[in-house]
Nucleic acid binder design. Sequence first.
DNA 1: CACGCATGTATCTAGAAGATACATATCTAA
DNA 2: TTAGATATGTATCTTCTAGATACATGCGTG
Lengths: 189, 189
Amino acid sequence: MREKTTRFVLLGALAAAGPLTGFDLRRWVGAELGAFWSESFGQIYPGLRELQAEGLVAAADRGGEGKPYRITPAGRAALLAWLSRSPRPERARSELLAKLHFGRFLGTESVRALLEAARRHASERLESVQAEAEALAQRTTGEERVFAQLTSERLLSVARAELAWAERALRTVEALEAGGPDAALATLA
Amino acid sequence: MREKTTRFVLLGALAAAGPLTGFDLRRWVGAELGAFWSESFGQIYPGLRELQAEGLVAAADRGGEGKPYRITPAGRAALLAWLSRSPRPERARSELLAKLHFGRFLGTESVRALLEAARRHASERLESVQAEAEALAQRTTGEERVFAQLTSERLLSVARAELAWAERALRTVEALEAGGPDAALATLA
DNA sequence: CACGCATGTATCTAGAAGATACATATCTAA
DNA sequence: TTAGATATGTATCTTCTAGATACATGCGTG
C-alpha cells in the first residue's frame, strides 16, 4: 500500500513557510515545488483535517482571513522521520513511449508528429525549468539555495537528455522513411 | 478529466500479440512495456469488459485454457486514433526531489544517505534498462526493432543523466560539509 | 497427501488528479 | 449602479490508477 505523501509535503510546506491556509498551501506547493510535485484541494483539506486530528498541525492564532495552520513539534518530528527514509524509486508511465512502442501501427508521418510533440514538450520543459532555476537563485541563499539548485540541476539534466533524444529520434525516423529499417538502425549504432 | 489510457494499451497489446487472456495481458505489458508502463488487474478486467461491451474487442474462439480476447476492426480504428493524438506532457512527482528540497531540515549525513539512495536507484535503473534493451534487440527485427530501440534510447539517456547528477550532487554535499554553502555553490557553477 | 507455484478471474481499498460547488470581497467596465 | 471577472477561501465529488486480496484449478514436488 502506498503511503500518503501529501501529508509530509504539507508538513514540509508549513515548516518552511507556515502558517498557511489550505489555499496558500496549494499555491506554495505550485510555486516552490511545481516542477516536480503537485497537490490538489482534494488532498489538501482532508489532509489538513487528518494532520490536525493527529496533533501534527494546529490552527494558527493569526488574525485575518481564512484558517491558517502551523506545524507542531510532533509534526516536525514526523516530517524529519519521513525525510530520513529512503525515497521510493521513481516510476511513471510514459504515454509517449507507449505510443512509440506501437509506432509500427502508424505511418511514419504520424510517428514524426509524435516525436515533434515530444521535442516541443521537452523544449518547453527545459525553458520553464531554466526560468525557475534562475528565479530560485535570486530568492534563496545559503543552504536553502544549495538544495534548490541541486533539484534544478536534476530537472535540467533530464530535460536536456529528453530534448537531445527527441532530436536524434526525429533523425532516425527520417532515415526510416528514406532507407527503411536498416538505415534507421544504423543511426542508432 | 483524465482519459483512461489503460484501454488503449490493452488494444495495442492485443493488436501486437493477441489473442490474450487478462492474465497474459498483464504479463505482456510487464514484459514488453514494463520499463515505462504498468497495468494492474484492477484495470485489466473491467477494461476488457468495457472494451467488449463497446465492440472494440471480442472473445477469441481459440480453444484451451482461459478466456482470450482479440481486437476487432473497430478496436484497431480506436487504437490508431489514440496513437495519432499528441501525448500528454509527462508529469510525475519525485519524492527524492521533494525530500531534497526540504534538505535544510536534515543534517548532511541524512542528505548524503538520500543521495546515495538516488545513486543506487539510478544505477539499478540503468542496468535494468540496458539489459532489457539488449534482450529487445535480440527478439525484434525491422520496424518493430527501430521503435523498440528508440524507446530504450530515451530511457537510457534519462537514466544516465540521473546517475551523473546523483554523483555530482554527492560531491556538492561533501563540499557543503567541508566548506559550507559557498563551497557547495561553487561546485554547481 | 499437503504445499507451493503457475495460470486465471475477479474485486476491493487507497492514493492522487482534477473537476465542481459554494462563499465572500474587491475591482472594473458598461 | 449593476454585472461580471478575479482573488481568496473552504469543501467535496468523481475518476483513474496502484496495489492488495480473494478465489479457483491444475500441476509438480517433498
